[in-house]
């Protein structure tokens, strides 16, 4: 059978470490929203970037892209200048000499 894991917020009353309320659930919801939204609900741009050498960054790491050659759909600039991105895939080509990442960035202020 498949794993059965039920997840709920704490609701215990009176015992150390547990509270009778939905505060825990709301805290996680708010936390996810603060970490991933509203960025998460906007449509990010996807940057595929190849860099020389083998780099240590991996999925979940941040990467700051400071490029004048790469354009963004952001309204106030044509360049990706100092855009912070989330690495969602990629890594070193160990039998080559480069590293390729797929990075999500949010064009600041882009309305469309």
């Amino acid at each position: 059978m498949k794993a059965e894991a039920a997840i709920r917020a704490p609701l215990f009353g009176g015992s150390p470490g547990f509270i009778t309320s939905s505060a825990g659930r709301d805290a996680w919801r708010a936390d996810i929203a603060s970490r991933l939204g509203p960025w998460f609900t906007e449509r990010p741009e996807v940057v595929t970037i190849t860099l020389p050498g083998w780099r240590p960054e991996t999925i979940g790491d941040g990467l700051v892209i400071d490029s004048e050659r790469m354009r963004s759909r952001a309204p106030d600039t044509d360049a990706l200048r100092g855009a912070v991105g989330l690495i969602i895939s990629g890594g070193p080509d160990f039998f080559g000499s480069s590293t390729t990442y797929t990075v999500l960035v949010v064009p600041d202020g882009a309305a469309t």
Binding site: S21, A23, G24, W28
Partner: peptide, 9 residues
Amino acid sequence: GPQAVQVIT
């Protein structure tokens, strides 16, 4: 505390 996640298996 209130942010602990409960898991029942």
